[in-house]
Each structure stands twice: as structure tokens, then as C-alpha cells.
Design a protein around this nucleic acid. Structure first.
Length: 352
DNA sequence: CAATCGCTTCACT
DNA sequence: CTAACGAGTGAAGCGATTG
């Protein structure tokens, strides 16, 4: 089995540099927020010039300015990135292998049993075509499992090409920090650190039962990966499980009217997104983040599938009221989400 | 006792 | 150097509830 993993390099920033070549060589940051309240947001993508100064995804924008005061801040131009993404994904699908789109700028191809030699040939060609046809840089990874292909890709960035075979996997993994495994973030890293597990090698030498106890099912998957066992599969049609929108308010507040207005706005956006994709939903949920950064959520399962904007908004209003009655802490951010989705085709109009 | 519900936690970019 | 107060999106996990 040969899996090809393609990941665009600093995708949003690269797209912006394509639109405006004058940005090349400059420190560029795409933020999560609009220009007017950019200091309340975080960095979504930073180009490599920015990364040299320690600016990376997830850090507060105001910290990015501390690291480099003359950076170029840009709002995300999602429609443009989506369009570019589609061009790339369509090209990948043209090869006829199963393709899983992992995100807006990542995809995995299952080349089946073509062997590494042919796989590398196809990978090189794809990389070249992406460079030629979009003028954007990307990195390609090849391995015998999706997760390992992703890791091969990650470790070859930027503008690289990484191959890890069955024979090489043990050496490839053993000295890397556990954080290099997809799915291990700060929290899991910390839990493992307490167990004195710092590298993937440590993980492979650890007791799987202990991992299961401390991390649940995830622990077993990590144990397998650390031992060179990658069960992940390329899934062509990954189904969407939920659609949500959340937004930070201009100022922290306990004002019901302000909150309800935001709920309406978000409900509308969620509805539009679901209508565009032709989804019906059976669950509506809301989320708030208080001024102290603690979070709370509340959700309601309907007794039927719905496709009504009014219903999202109405339930959202009820739920937020229940949440606000419980305490009157200031609210910083609210979110609306629908889940238990079903394609609303004429064929299946299920009333439960 | 398995499926569903309601909610929290976590990992990305 | 470390703790910290930063957005938005989504999936997964888990205990409680229910039929």
C-alpha cells in the first residue's frame, strides 16, 4: 500500500503572495479577525519570513506584532482560497485514485499497490504540476499509511518531498517528540510528559495498558503508531457531522439583547451554510465563552429533522436564556452549531 | 443493555 | 523563561438517560 500526502505550504499566505507579488519577501500574517479588531485575534497562517521571527499559527496577533512590528496583516480571503483549493483537488482527483480531502489545503491519495517506485514518480509529477499550474509551493509525503505519509510530508516542509518506507519507519519515528504524531497536542503531550514519555521511541516502549488508562482509546492508537502500525485509511467521502459559527463580541457583556442579536446573526450564517450544502439537521447547540475564558455549551435534540432558519434561531434563544439564568458572568464569545445532519434530498424525507 | 442525548475536551490552522 | 487570557472550526470522548 502506498499513500501520497499533499500539503500546501503556508497556504493562505502563499495565496496572498500570488495575488499580490509585492508581498514576497515580506513578513506576512493572515489573522482570524478583521483589520479593525485584529489585536483580539490570533494568527491563522504565517509565511516563512514571519516564522523566522517565531510567528506561527495560533499565537495572539498582538504577540506577533511584538515579534515583528512591521509585519503585513491581512484578512482571510476565503473565497479565493476555496477556489484555489478546488483547482488543486480537482487535479488530484483526475488521477483516478481514491482521494481524501483532509482540509482546505491537504489531501491524501491511496495509490494502492503500485509500489514505491511508481508512487514516487506520481508524487513528483503531482508536485510539479501543482507548482506549474497554480504557482504555489507544496510538500509531498509518501509512506505505507496515511498518518505516516502525513508525517513524512510534515517533516519535509517547505517545498519538499519525503519518503518513509516500512524499513525506515522505526528510525524515522523513534527520536521525534511525541508532538510530531498527528493528534497529539499540548494536553496529551503534557500527560505523556508526566509518564516520562517524551519521544515516540519512549511511547513504543511504554505499557499500552497504562496508555489506555490515561488516554483512553487514543492511547492505543498512539501506541500502535509509535510501533510503526498505521491503521488509518483514505476515506473518499468523509461526511460532515456539524456546521457551526462562533464569534467574539466587541465587548464583554451580560446584555441579553446584544447576545441574542449575535445568536441571530450566527444562526443565519449557519443556516445559509447548511442550505448551501442541502443539509437537514436534528440538533441545535450553542456555546458561550465567559470573560474568565471558561466555556459552557447547551444543546437540544429535536424530534424531527429540520431545515428552518427560524428553528435554529428560536432554539438558540431558548438555550442562551437557560445558560444566562444560571449565572450572570460577562460573556465574551458565543457560538451556534447544528449537528445530526442529513442530506435533504427528495429521496429521504425522514420524519422521526 | 445498546442507542441516543447533552456536554466537555482537544487538536488543528 | 514561563505562564498565559487568543479565534474559529470541527471531531471525539464520556457519563447520563432512555426505551
Amino acid at each position: 500500500m502506498v499513500i501520497l500526502y499533499i500539503d500546501m505550504d503556508y497556504f493562505f499566505a502563499a495565496c496572498e503572495q500570488l495575488k499580490n507579488p509585492e508581498l514576497k519577501g515580506k513578513v506576512v500574517v493572515i489573522g482570524t479577525n478583521k483589520e479593525d479588531n485584529k489585536m483580539k485575534g490570533v494568527v491563522q497562517t504565517a509565511n516563512y519570513e514571519a516564522r523566522k521571527y517565531g510567528i506561527k499559527s495560533g499565537i495572539p496577533t498582538k504577540d506577533a506584532y511584538k515579534l515583528y512590528k512591521d509585519l503585513v496583516y491581512l484578512e482571510a480571503d476565503e473565497p479565493y482560497y476555496e477556489k484555489t483549493s478546488k483547482t488543486i483537488m480537482d487535479m488530484l482527483k483526475g488521477y483516478g485514485f481514491p482521494v481524501e480531502q483532509e482540509s482546505i489545503d491537504e489531501a491524501a491519495l491511496d495509490l494502492g499497490d503500485v509500489g514505491y517506485e511508481k508512487g514516487i514518480g506520481i508524487g513528483k509529477e503531482i508536485k510539479k504540476r501543482i507548482n506549474n499550474e497554480t504557482n504555489l509551493p507544496c510538500t509531498v509525503g509518501i509512506s505505507f499509511g496515511k498518518t505516516f505519509a502525513k508525517m513524512a510530508c510534515e517533516s519535509s516542509k517547505p517545498d519538499g518531498f519525503g519518503i518513509v518506507t516500512e524499513n525506515e519507519i522505526t528510525d524515522f519515528l523513534k527520536t521525534k517528540p511525541v508532538k510530531a504524531l498527528p493528534g497529539i497536542g499540548p494536553k496529551t503531550e503534557e500527560k505523556l510528559k508526566i509518564l516520562r514519555i517524551n519521544t515516540i521511541g519512549d511511547l513504543s516502549d511504554s505499557d499500552p495498558l497504562l496508555l489506555k488508562e490515561k488516554l483512553g482509546i487514543v492511547g492505543i492508537e498512539l501506541y500502535n503508531l509509535s510501533n510503526g502500525i498505521d491503521k488509518s485509511k483514505v476515506v473518499e467521502f468523509e461526511e460532515v457531522l456539524s456546521i457551526g459559527r462562533e464569534r467574539t463580541l466587541n465587548e464583554e457583556t451580560t446584555d441579553v439583547t446584544v447576545i441574542k442579536n449575535m445568536i441571530s446573526e450566527l444562526s443565519k450564517e449557519v443556516f445559509e451554510e447548511s442550505a448551501k450544502k442541502n443539509f437537514w439537521f436534528k440538533d441545535v447547540g450553542i456555546k458561550v465563552r465567559y470573560a474568565d475564558f471558561t466555556q459552557a455549551t447547551k444543546s437540544k435534540t429535536l424530534n424531527h429533522y429540520s431545515s428552518s432558519e427560524e428553528e435554529i434561531e428560536r432554539i438558540g434563544a431558548v438555550l442562551i436564556k437557560e445558560l444566562m439564568n444560571k449565572n450572570n458572568k460577562k460573556i465574551r464569545k458565543v457560538g451556534v452549531r447544528i449537528s445530526s445532519l442529513m442530506k435533504g434530498n427528495s429521496q429521504k424525507r425522514l420524519i422521526v
